[in-house]
């Protein structure tokens, strides 16, 4: 009894390890909540900067309905963001047309077919692709792809939806591949064994069993890819032509929301209408990306409930 009490007292003793333990606990807690703190502060900051413009010069019909983005005009300043939204959407759409088949194909090959060294090498290479900085991608678009597209399709300029879409597709593919492969791996081995026991071929196993079972994970991979597309700035700025234009084909130049903010914010007087308008674009972009990521998250949660 006495012995027990003594050991309890020793446990209660606040020595250096106890303090370190507490300190680490607090640090971990701060790390854990920091994401929430940051996201809320960022949103408050963006909203605060944009709200003055929304309350003042902002017109809903102009912002969403007009392509006239002339924030520094000497005669009549207009803030129509329609062309920028269509630009972002068209580039992201083109990117997904390219990235979805590539990344799902790569995920299925890496997850289901490749074995041993091939598999490991491929995984490393895919991750390496994700490590290429976006300014490098943009430079490839501006210098190499521009000439290739002009020569190949005989169009006046190679900085267009196709160029930016291909670049963005290649940028989004690695992360989509990684998430899709994780989703495929999460399908229990017994599903595959059962299907094979029923006499299904390899392809039938993948097409009828593995893909339906990992559907949610695959959808969320695609959604995260779309989120990446909406948010990418530098590469899109360089490869899209940065031209206010509603594209009629994949060979027209466009301008993205993010690229507009990046190109114009640096030289804009703090507090001016132009500054507020750029932050309003930021609010819009934030809400869209937030919605996409939320959807992706809810879809993934869908799997875990099952």
């Amino acid at each position: 009894m006495a012995k027990q009490q003594q050991s309890l007292r020793r446990l209660d003793h606040r020595d250096i390890s106890w303090y370190i333990d507490r300190l680490v606990q607090i640090l971990m807690f701060m790390g854990g909540i920091s994401a929430i703190v940051f996201i809320i502060s960022i949103f408050i900051f963006i909203a605060k900067e944009g709200v003055g413009f929304i309350g003042d010069e902002f017109s809903l019909s102009e912002f969403f309905g007009s392509i006239n983005w002339r924030p520094t005009s000497e005669t009549n300043e207009t803030y129509g963001a329609l062309a920028l939204m269509v630009g972002t959407a068209s580039i992201t759409g083109m990117a997904m047309l390219i990235a979805i088949p590539f990344s799902l194909g790569a995920a299925i090959y890496i997850g289901e077919f490749a074995t041993g060294k091939t598999r490991e090498t491929l995984k490393i290479l895919v991750e390496l692709l994700a490590a290429i900085p976006s300014v490098v991608w943009g430079f490839i678009g501006l210098t190499i792809m521009n000439g290739i597209i002009i020569d190949l399709f005989d169009v006046p300029i190679g900085l267009n939806v196709l160029n930016a879409g291909v670049i963005l597709g290649l940028m989004a593919a690695p992360i989509m591949t990684t998430i899709a492969e994780d989703a495929l791996k999460a399908v229990p081995e017994k599903y595959r064994e059962a299907a094979e026991a029923m006499g299904a071929t390899r392809w039938q196993v993948i097409w009828r069993v593995v893909i339906p079972a990992s559907k949610n994970g695959l959808v969320s991979a695609v959604l995260l890819g779309i989120g990446r597309g909406f948010g990418e700035t530098m590469a899109v700025l360089m490869a899209s032509g940065h031209s206010i234009n509603i594209p009629g084909s994949a060979f027209d130049s466009v301008r993205a929301l993010t690229a507009t903010i990046a190109a114009e914010l640096g030289e804009t007087a703090v507090g001016s209408s132009h500054y507020g308008a750029l932050f309003t674009l930021g609010i819009f972009l934030f809400l869209i990306t937030f919605l996409i990521n939320l959807t992706a998250d809810l879809v993934v949660r869908g799997i875990k409930k099952k």
Binding site: E74, T75, L142, L159, L237, H242
Partner: peptide, 23 residues
């Protein structure tokens, strides 16, 4: 006057020269 919309708005003088050189 305002610029006609649809111009390719480059982010630097060097980019303008680069683009014209290749187009």
């Amino acid at each position: 006057q305002d610029f006609k919309l649809g111009s390719r708005d480059m982010h630097g003088s060097k980019d303008v020269v680069d683009l014209v050189m290749h187009t």
